[in-house]
Amino acid sequence: MTQAGTAPPGADDGTARAEAVLSRLQLLVTRKLDGLLQGDYAGLLPGPGSEAGESREYRPGDDVRRMDWPVTARTTTPHVRRTVADRELETWLAVDLSASVDFGTARWLKRDLVIAAAAAMAHLTVRGGNRIGAVVGTGSGVPASTGSRGWRRRRDTTPPAEPTPPSMVRLPARPGRKEAQGLLRAIARTSIRPGRADLGALVDMLNRPPRRRGVAVVISDFLAPVEGWARPVRKLGVRHDVLAIEVVDPRELELPDVGVLTLADPETGALHEVQTADPALRRRYAEAAGEQRAVIARALRAAGAAHLRLRTDTDWLLDMVRFVAAQRHARTRGTTR
């Protein structure tokens, strides 16, 4: 564990950039998301709640486990018991700041999208006494032994002078917008280290200690091996509403035809020279990337998590607004995610 928000000497430029990004995000989020989720809800993914409310007639798609049998017997018409969502919501973020998110070839870096998603979650959930906390994970400080498909252009392949332990920071859940802004600053100032973060261990931190039902949001590019994080996400979904926000760069889905590229895996340090003028290679890359994303989507769906994909080359706020609106529409019609 390390202290939240600590930065190494010489990180003033990174801190200034983080503050600038947060200031711009605050304006964007306030303009487009404010008022989006007003009313009787339990956060971004408004669930059925746990407190008993009034009864209403059964409609196709309603959960039969909420049948109100005494009212059904009296009226001879099937009724279900409505439930009122808890007024105090606790939201926890698992923020993956592994080396693979320090990359971007379009309008945003993937790191910026991670911070943007965290800012949007904070804005949507911190009101009325709701609390928000986070666990933040980054690399171990040394290259990992195996790679992933998260390639980027070579920057600096010099290994650090000595190994440092993996970094996972827990930021306690507190109510209020001021506390939420402090949490976002701590996330934005977190230094990204080389090496792979253990996404499974990061998600598992949200399961300990056991908490009352709430919302758990996992923000990552999910490039870590699926078998390492799928089970913790499934476990998380047993008790909480889980939202998985996947950040993607278009170059992770397909290669451009720009000749020979020297690429470095940011998590392992492995180098590859790629001839992007070869159409067969570009086709194989796109097919492998598509299969990788399909495996990620299947694992999240099997875990019962809502899945939102944000790309660095699109309007992420518009994508988020559409996603939230679709979730609310599905809930009000009595359907499931």
Rank of each mutant, 00 (worst) to 15 (best):
P160N: 09
G53I: 02
T190M: 04
L263W: 03
R212S: 12
R65Q: 04
A18H: 03
L317N: 02
G35T: 05
G61Q: 09
D34E: 14
V274S: 04
G195V: 09
A16F: 08
G147Y: 05
V135R: 10
L300I: 01
R331G: 04
P232L: 01
W92L: 14
R193V: 03
T157L: 12
L28Y: 05
G200C: 06
R177F: 06
Q3D: 15
G137R: 02
A299K: 00
Q26P: 00
D278Q: 11
R231H: 13
V71L: 11
V260D: 09
A302W: 07
A303N: 00
G150R: 04
P143Y: 07
E54V: 12
G200L: 04
R293N: 04
E88L: 11
R66C: 03
L25I: 03
S98W: 02
Q3T: 15
P78N: 00
R170I: 14
R154T: 15
T76K: 13
T105C: 07
A201Y: 03
A264N: 10
K178D: 12
T15E: 08
A303E: 00
A119W: 03
D68E: 07
P160V: 08
Q181H: 11
Q38H: 12
T6M: 12
R212A: 13
R213V: 05
R155L: 12
M121A: 15
A306M: 04
P46L: 01
A4E: 08
H123C: 03
A280Q: 14
K32Y: 15
V242Q: 00
E291I: 12
G214N: 05
V321M: 10
R154H: 09
Q292F: 15
D156A: 04
S55V: 14
A7K: 00
R284V: 11
L223Q: 10
V218T: 07
P225K: 04
L271G: 05
P225M: 06
S50N: 05
M205E: 15
G137I: 02
L318F: 10
H272S: 13
D198C: 09
A230H: 03
A188W: 02
H307M: 05
W108F: 15
R66W: 13
T335F: 08
D13L: 14
L36W: 03
R31F: 10
M205T: 14
T314V: 04
R283T: 14
P166L: 09
A4Y: 06
D86L: 10
S50F: 08
G128D: 13
L281E: 08
R24I: 10
W92N: 02
A18P: 06
R155G: 11
R213F: 06
V233Q: 01
A73K: 03
R283Y: 10
P46F: 01
R309I: 06
D102F: 13
T83R: 12
G5V: 07
D40T: 13
L33G: 07
V142F: 12
P225I: 09
